[in-house]
């Protein structure tokens, strides 16, 4: 079959909501787009452990500590589901690690911001995981089977993350003035970076049209961002917290909240590597990878030795 015919047949499957599986024919660009998107998503889960891991040893109670450990462990799990989904497209795990560690691959910029107080853990759970859920729920219907299936698992687990974050903030908002201020301060710092998590505006996102046609994406960046704002405004009222945007206003005509201008210079600056923690995050990942090398090698050597012994035993 000719390339054009194959591509038409592929698009027909997509249009009919038939999922694409690893060994099916797919356009090279579809494969490349997915490898990039899934591996970046995996990297985000892995790097996402770092800002939160920062507070495990200083969590204010045992309840908070076990919750946070479980959450960070989930993020590791999510990274692993996603790496294995990416591998079905023909890229190997080590190549992805190299891309992350060398700084060649991107991950979600949100994780380049520091976690300064305990309230930041609440803010991350509520806003960052909230934005991630907004993004990930439609991905459960992504046209690529392994990615969609990984997302189903991730979404199931993510809901605990968001709830524990909200509860942390609620506890602080019911506490002393100092605790309330701490929560408000965290929201002031995390709100705008969370809004940026949905990526550039639709006008500035040239790949969106193709990704929508291939049903990798189901909603545009701006659509998801709007959903996020609408949901958060009401949740903020429950918390009694103020979202740091003076332009936030209900628009009767649109049936949505209007919001202020996003600082895209800041966004691109962080993407380019100049955020508050980019260098620290990469350094930590590289150290973890390098320091774990002997463990990986020893485990492999042990298993090879054992296999050789077993084989020798059989001969004798």
């Amino acid at each position: 079959m000719k390339e054009a015919d194959l591509e038409q047949k592929f698009q027909d499957k997509i249009d009919a909501e038939i999922r694409i599986e690893p060994r099916d024919w797919m356009p090279e660009k579809y494969r490349k787009t997915l490898i990039r998107q899934i591996s970046q998503h995996a990297h985000s889960e892995i790097v996402g452990m770092l800002p939160e891991g920062n507070w495990i040893s200083r969590a204010p109670s045992l309840k908070r500590k076990v919750g946070l450990i479980a959450k960070v462990q989930d993020e590791a799990g999510h990274g692993l589901y996603l790496y294995s989904a990416a591998e079905t497209l023909g890229i190997d795990r080590d190549t992805m690690f190299q891309q992350l560690n060398s700084g060649k691959a991107k991950y979600s910029s949100i994780f380049n911001y520091p976690t300064i107080t305990w309230a930041d853990i609440g803010a991350i759970g509520w806003l960052v995981d909230g934005a991630a859920i907004m993004n990930q729920v439609p991905l459960c219907r992504c046209s690529y089977g392994p990615y969609a299936r990984a997302m189903v698992r991730v979404c199931k687990e993510e809901s605990f993350h968001q709830r524990q974050g909200f509860e942390i903030l609620m506890t602080l908002m019911n506490g002393s003035q100092e605790q309330k201020d701490m929560a408000q301060n965290a929201i002031d710092r995390w709100w705008w970076p969370s809004m940026m998590m949905f990526g550039p505006t639709d006008d500035d996102s040239p790949n969106t049209v193709q990704s929508m046609k291939w049903k990798i994406k189901r909603y545009t960046n701006d659509e998801l961002r709007q959903k996020f704002v609408d949901v958060c405004v009401d949740q903020a009222k429950v918390l009694g917290i103020t979202l740091p945007d003076p332009d936030l206003k209900w628009n009767e005509e649109r049936g949505h909240y209007d919001f202020g201008k996003i600082n895209w210079d800041e966004f691109w600056n962080v993407v380019k590597g100049n955020g508050p923690c980019n260098k620290q995050r990469l350094k930590t990942r590289n150290e973890a990878y390098d320091n774990g090398k002997w463990v990986r090698e020893a485990a492999m050597a042990y298993s090879e030795k054992r296999a050789a012994r077993k084989a020798a035993g059989k001969v004798a």
């Binding site: 294995s84 795990r93 485990a299 296999a307």
Partner: peptide
């Protein structure tokens, strides 16, 4: 359910 990397079957 998915896949993973490990040095041997026990791990």
């Amino acid at each position: 359910v998915g896949s993973l990397h490990a040095p041997d079957e026990e791990v």
